[in-house]
């Protein structure tokens, strides 16, 4: 059985400018132990997807569709039931390690909380477990560090604390929303490696969210490319990188610095900006920025089609996109 099965997930937000759909008809499947990447520019609905999975959408947001964890739909669960699932069966790491920890509590106390809540440990046992967890995520001197406050730790260390926190109850799924975006480049790799190792050791499933195609390519088995709240391309990571198809994915790739690239060669970027959710085109959300779009794109939503059993794309002009890729790319 699938561990996580997201079916036709829609996230609607009521904003001052009107209703906005931040995630539309999203489908994700995840097996136990599998790693999935969600990639896309900022503002395309990645965080909203993650928060919907956690049941922690902002007050003005609602999710519809189905999010099945081990067969049970999380959207049907009561708040009390969700409290027992969060941090226990699904855990999440956030983008901002500097502000994601409570400044007035010691980190020991903060990591202890889920242990006491979900595993019912008493204070002493919980504290021992905290020290073990901190050691595991590579914090030196863990038995002293538990008494530290967040402001006494560096950004990288705080993210390690967040990882220890997420790991504490051995969840089935770990969601990491841009876990390294706010960190120094040198520390980014260490944190990603740590997550990788721990996920493998624990046999957890991972949902890794990033705007960086490189991070996704190195750390995940499957990938979902999102734009304007919809999935434009998905499949096995290796496969997709071999056969970049959707004009948006090609654009993301072109915008990525590559090894061996001449120092003074400029990166190409996709012209335009992420669309305003309130005024999205009826059809393909990428229409306004797409180099090969036609009027048909604006009016009808492209169906997601199988390129192969492990690669799906939603584009009206798939053939043109493939031709363009093979003749030097859509973006020059």
């Amino acid at each position: 059985m699938l561990l996580l099965d997201v079916e036709n997930l829609n996230v609607d937000l009521s904003t001052a400018k009107g209703p906005a759909r931040a995630v539309r008809n999203l489908n994700i499947q995840l097996e136990k132990g599998e790693t999935l990447g969600i990639v896309g520019e900022s503002g395309c609905g990645k965080s909203m997807t993650a928060l919907a999975l956690m049941g922690l959408l902002p007050d003005n947001g609602t999710a519809t569709g189905a999010i099945r964890l081990g067969g049970e739909n999380l959207l049907d669960k009561s708040e009390a039931e969700m409290c027992r699932i969060r941090g226990n069966r699904i855990a999440m790491i956030f983008q901002e390690p500097m502000t994601s920890l409570n400044p007035v509590h010691t980190i020991g106390r903060q990591i202890m909380e889920p242990l006491r809540l979900h595993r019912g440990l008493d204070k002493k046992d919980a504290m021992e477990e905290v020290v073990r967890l901190l050691d595991r995520v590579g914090i030196p001197n863990p038995s002293e560090r538990v008494r530290n406050y967040p402001h006494q730790l560096s950004g990288g260390q705080r993210q390690r604390v967040m990882i220890a926190l997420a790991l504490s109850c051995a969840p089935d799924i770990l969601i990491a929303d841009e876990p390294t975006t706010a960190l120094d480049v040198t520390i980014q790799d260490q944190i990603l490696d740590l997550i990788q190792t721990l996920v493998e050791e624990e046999g957890m499933s991972l949902v890794l969210i990033s705007h960086d195609l490189g991070v996704i390519a190195e750390n995940t088995q499957k990938v979902v490319v999102m734009y304007g709240g919809t999935v434009v391309e998905s499949g096995n990571t290796d496969k997709i990188f071999d056969e970049l198809t959707h004009p948006y994915t090609q654009g993301l790739f072109a915008a990525m610095p590559k090894v061996g690239m001449g120092r003074n060669k400029r990166l190409t970027t996709i012209p335009g900006t992420v669309p305003d959710l309130v005024n999205l085109p009826k059809g393909c959300t990428f229409t306004d920025r797409c180099p090969i779009a036609t009027d048909a794109c604006r009016d009808t939503v492209p169906a997601i089609q199988d390129m192969s059993s492990t690669h799906q794309v939603a584009c009206h002009h798939m053939q043109n996109a493939i031709t363009a890729r093979e003749t030097g790319g859509l973006y020059k």
Binding site: M54, L56, C83, R86, G87, N88, S100, P114
Partner: peptide, 15 residues
């Protein structure tokens, strides 16, 4: 509205 409140909720702490 602070991020750490979201963290607490993500741990499974009730409102």
């Amino acid at each position: 509205r602070e991020d750490f409140v979201r963290t607490a909720r993500a741990k499974g702490v009730s409102r």
